[in-house]
Amino acid sequence: MANAPERFDAVFLPDGVSKISYEHPMNDPSTAVFRIEREDHTIGNLLRMQLLRDKNVIFAGYRQPHPLQHHIELRVKVKQPSSLSEESPVTALIEAITDLDQELNLLQDRFQFAVGRAQAAQSETG
């Protein structure tokens, strides 16, 4: 077991490593490849599908390069090349995250409401 990877490697973000970093391949500001550390298909697919709903995004895809490398690469291309204006891949990702967060917020509220009502109904019927 000497060469087995540590169990927490997939979970624990080491010091000095940033959670997310990105680069523009071929110096193309309309494309960015985000490297997200210590995440997997859970977040990768979630972000990809949300980005594809954005009409400015013309490509969004992700991959986990290797099962023993605990990061994913998310590639995003947007319509118009610009640096930090509305259409940059960074703002597209920020917006996608905001939308997902709002969706989950709503889901949380609705779930707690439904559970509260179900439990109240149960205690009434005994």
Binding site: E39, I43, I94, T98
Partner: peptide, 18 residues
């Protein structure tokens, strides 16, 4: 749901910082 939201928020914060 909280775990997922925390993940997304953490991602957004560090993306802004980056």
């Amino acid at each position: 749901i909280s775990v997922l939201r925390n993940k997304l928020q953490e991602l957004q914060t560090s993306l802004r910082a980056e």
